[in-house]
């Protein structure tokens, strides 16, 4: 048991040691900051096709995209509302008529009472 744990410890120690050596080796790699000749010209050529970010255009595009689902929802609701009123119309036409009459005459009734 003791021998096995010593073996594992030694292995770990060795791995740590190699890891440290790897990091030290990586630190010693000199930075290569060489640039290809006229590289900035290449980027500038690319930039001519790049348009600056226009926030108004982004908003307009977003709103335009949102308009289509909004219209679709509106149409659905309108259709649903129209269909539901036509089916209920016959059943509740009398009730609606009396309610309308009651609403229209309500102010006059109130006036009569106050006289």
């Amino acid at each position: 048991m003791h021998q096995r744990s010593t073996l594992i410890l030694n292995k770990m120690k060795k791995n740590n040691d190699i890891f440290d050596r790897l990091i030290r080796a990586a630190r010693r790699i000199p930075e290569n900051d060489q640039t290809p000749y006229s590289f900035e010209k290449r980027i500038m050529a690319q930039l001519r096709d790049v348009k600056p970010v226009d926030n108004v255009a982004i908003w307009a595009l977003g709103l335009w995209k949102a308009a289509v689902p909004c219209v679709a929802v509106m149409l659905l609701i309108t259709t649903w509302a129209t269909l539901s009123t036509t089916t209920d119309a016959n059943a509740s036409s009398d009730a609606l008529a009396s309610e309308l009459q009651h609403t229209m005459t309500q102010p006059f009734q109130a006036l009569e009472e106050s006289w």
Binding site: N32, D33, T35, F39, M44, L47
Partner: peptide, 18 residues
């Protein structure tokens, strides 16, 4: 003045390349 950006690239490109 997009052309002015070239001097920024020229100045910083070694660092970015590294």
């Amino acid at each position: 003045d997009t052309a002015a950006y070239e001097s920024l690239i020229a100045h910083y490109q070694p660092r970015v390349f590294a």
